[in-house]
Design a protein around this nucleic acid. Structure first.
Lengths: 160, 160
DNA sequence: TGTCAAACTAAAATAATTATCAATAGTACT
DNA sequence: AGTACTATTGATAATTATTTTAGTTTGACA
């Protein structure tokens, strides 16, 4: 955990940026909430709990900076806010997302599913891929289970 | 073209919405610019050319409605504005996008590249997929060509 | 210690989108 | 045709997310 911060520090230094206390606080929040997909506002509120004097603009600037250095990914699920996600260390590409249209949960897929697809795109469309975003919208396993429990008659009803 | 409008009209009627002149004007703009990925503002300006009395809010409302009925797709490339795209008729899935990080151009891929991937996701993650978004970020063929023309020495320089 | 640039906070500005609300158009019924 | 009703619209205010600005603080280095 600490080592993770150290490495981020080095990444910043290598581009002659500094890991200021505010930036460190922001990174820590991201580390502590790696599972979630926090919006800038979310990050701001969490950072504020530990460092109340921090400004929203600083959080925005820090996230922007981290995104530029590819330490975090800025993603957009179409709900109007940008979300920020720490990159897996050493991951060459972006992970994918499963967005549940019932409960809004966002799960991650770390595996790279697009190897073959990328090859096709690079050769067929002559496009040099640098990054990708893949998001599935649908119903997560939790909601499927719940739906089944609530409306077990659906299956028979449809059989008419 | 006219038949396309007719079909959209029917789709609206089937949900008891009407194809008002304003809505028709908006749809026409989308049809005439099917290749582009217009923002709400873009659509508004184009609609205004033919029907100057139309209001911005109406365009937003219409686009929202069309998106709800799955007649258009609302996409978000992370540049802060939502873009709107007519669905291919009968297309079960969303088409994919190639966003050039140099010139900003957005090209489309109509083929469905994700058949296999979706199957994997549905079974391995137990996720019922309803829709997907796949966007590649990279360098389009136009910029690749241009880069080559401008800096033909790069290749030899690297060979040192 | 003094200087300078980077980074900070708070507040104002901007951009995109949404909500409000009175006016209008269309429709259904008499 | 006339009235009541509902959907839709345009203008504009409000909201939300984000960026910029202005002035201040901090910390590295001569």
């Amino acid at each position: 955990m600490e080592s993770r911060i150290d490495r981020i520090k080095k990444q910043l230094h290598s581009q002659s940026y500094k890991l200021t206390p505010q930036r460190e606080a922001t990174v820590r929040v991201l580390l502590e909430n790696e599972e979630d997909h926090l919006s800038a506002e979310d990050v701001y509120l969490l950072v504020k709990e530990k460092s109340p004097e921090i400004g929203l603009a600083t959080v925005y600037r820090t996230l922007e900076l981290l995104a530029e250095l590819k330490i975090v990914d800025k993603i957009n699920f179409g709900d109007g806010v940008s979300r920020f996600d720490l990159r897996q260390e050493g991951a060459a590409h972006f992970h994918h997302h499963l967005v549940c249209i019932e409960c809004g949960a966002v799960d991650e897929i770390q595996e790279d599913l697009l190897g073959d697809v990328e090859e096709v795109v690079e050769t067929n469309w002559n496009f040099k891929i640098k990054d990708h975003r893949l998001t599935f919208h649908g119903i997560c396993y939790r909601c499927q289970k719940q739906d089944q429990a609530e409306q077990p008659e659906i299956e028979t009803a449809n059989r008419s």
